[in-house]
Simulated scan of single mutants.
Amino acid sequence: MMDAAAEIATTALPGIPRDDDGPVFREPWEAQAFAMALALHGRGLFTWKEWAQALAEEIKRAQANGDPDTGETYYRHWLATLEGLISAKGVASPATLHRYRDAWDHAADRTPHGSPIELKPEDFAA
């Protein structure tokens, strides 16, 4: 059974991949991106109407750039929308988001498959 916030999100945003039990995720990061959006909405960073509009714009941009819209990239659009709103709202600059994305890439490259990825100070050294 999904919690109330997830139920509200899936009702407000009907495009979310789901089954009878609620949202479905192919990989853990998709669930984490979903949870981050729920948490930021819960803190009042954006309304679901604002989120839905930003997500729709992100998907349209991706389709214009050749995304086949098969559903497999849905949460990539979700994450891009989350990053865009975080930046637009002044929570983190695009440069900060880029810095952390690069650090995560570096940390992932040095982490054996199946092990937890941990950021270390050296991951931020360019």
Score class of each variant (00 low, 15 high):
Asp3Thr: 06
Asp3Cys: 09
Glu7Gly: 10
Ile8Ser: 10
Ala9Phe: 13
Ala9Glu: 03
Thr10Glu: 12
Thr11Asp: 07
Ala12Gly: 05
Pro14Val: 06
Pro14Arg: 11
Ile16Pro: 00
Pro17Glu: 04
Arg18Glu: 03
Arg18Phe: 01
Asp19Ile: 07
Asp19Arg: 06
Asp20Ser: 13
Asp21Thr: 12
Asp21Phe: 04
Pro23Thr: 09
Val24Lys: 02
Val24Ser: 07
Phe25His: 07
Trp29Cys: 02
Gln32Ser: 13
Ala33Asp: 06
Ala33Ile: 02
Ala33Val: 10
Phe34His: 09
Met36Gly: 01
Ala37Asn: 01
Leu38Phe: 03
Leu38Asp: 02
Leu38Tyr: 01
Arg43Lys: 12
Trp48Ser: 08
Lys49Val: 13
Glu50Gln: 14
Trp51Tyr: 03
Gln53Val: 14
Leu55Glu: 05
Ala56Ile: 00
Glu58Gln: 15
Lys60Tyr: 00
Lys60Ile: 07
Lys60Leu: 08
Gln63Leu: 07
Asn65Arg: 15
Gly66Arg: 11
Asp67Val: 10
Pro68Cys: 05
Asp69Met: 14
Thr70Asn: 11
Gly71Asp: 02
Glu72Phe: 09
Glu72Gly: 12
Leu79Val: 05
Leu82Ser: 06
Ser87Val: 08
Ser87Leu: 01
Ala88Pro: 00
Ala88Lys: 15
Lys89Leu: 05
Lys89Met: 03
Lys89Arg: 15
Gly90Asp: 02
Val91Glu: 13
Ala92Glu: 07
Ala92His: 10
Ser93Glu: 06
Pro94Cys: 03
Ala95Gln: 11
Thr96Ile: 13
Thr96Asn: 04
Leu97Gln: 09
Leu97Asp: 01
Arg99Val: 01
Arg101Thr: 11
Ala107Lys: 06
Ala107Tyr: 06
Ala108Arg: 14
Thr111Gly: 03
Pro112Tyr: 03
Ile117Val: 15
Lys120Pro: 00
Pro121Glu: 06
Asp123Ser: 10
Ala125Gln: 11
